[in-house]
Design a protein around this nucleic acid. Structure first.
Lengths: 117, 117
DNA sequence: TGACAATGTGTCGGAATCGGATATAACGAA
DNA sequence: TTCGTTATATCCGATTCCGACACATTGTCA
């Protein structure tokens, strides 16, 4: 339970959050992450290639993400990434933090927006 | 319903989000905002003076925040700020967006963190 | 009184982050 | 073989963040 180590990463920059979240479903390659973030956020958060690959490098260096063997892939260009256990450990309190923000906003009666289809 | 106008501000940078959220409770001066953000986030988000005053200037320029008359204040140094209706209009979909992120994370079974006291 | 902590606004400059344009190449289908 | 999509990657300017510092006012208390 290395709380101090984890706390040093918080709060997560938005791009990092979305990348880690996309990877909770299993390993993905960069381009796949880009698409998944778009779908998961219902197109409300767009991740361009610059932000994506910059962040992947940093996330690797910080050991929040690991390279996941490509494993006989039909497309030789792809590089796969997966969430490390440290990444999991960081994502979790960050989500809790955001829940706090949302809860606070609701307490403050910030007008509800209808959910989109 | 100036959706396009509002969308141009989204997503909100984290510091802006917290400042606007702090102002939903009524007008506050800069230092008060700093303290309120700290309390509202249970010390998980810290806003330093650099970030604060930078953002206040930008938020004013963008008309998300307005100067709120100081109104016989015991302390002459204070400058008060309040949320504009545009600011309200921007905060609302941003909160909805974050709810989406949290919901997605829960779907993905990102481990629950116990709430702090 | 005089000192000192807390309050309060603000600037500065470097670091981190973001985001679009661009480059390059492999893949798939027509 | 040509074209659109998939895919990785870099570059670079713009934005955002953040702590250090400066400076003034207010409140407290010995």
């Amino acid at each position: 339970m290395d709380k101090a180590r984890i706390d040093a990463f918080l709060p997560l920059a938005p791009a990092k959050l979305h990348i880690l979240l996309a990877l909770t479903g299993g390993k993905l390659h960069g381009y796949g992450i880009m698409q998944k973030v778009l779908r998961q956020s219902e197109a409300r958060y767009k991740l361009g290639p610059g932000t994506l690959y910059d962040n992947l490098q940093r996330l690797m260096k910080q050991s929040l993400v690991e390279e996941g063997g490509s494993l006989q892939d039909r497309d030789s260009r792809r590089r796969y990434y997966r969430l490390s256990s440290l990444g999991q450990g960081v994502l979790s309190p960050e989500i809790a933090r955001l829940e706090g923000v949302v809860r606070e906003a609701r307490l403050r009666r910030v007008p509800q927006q209808p959910r989109r289809a």
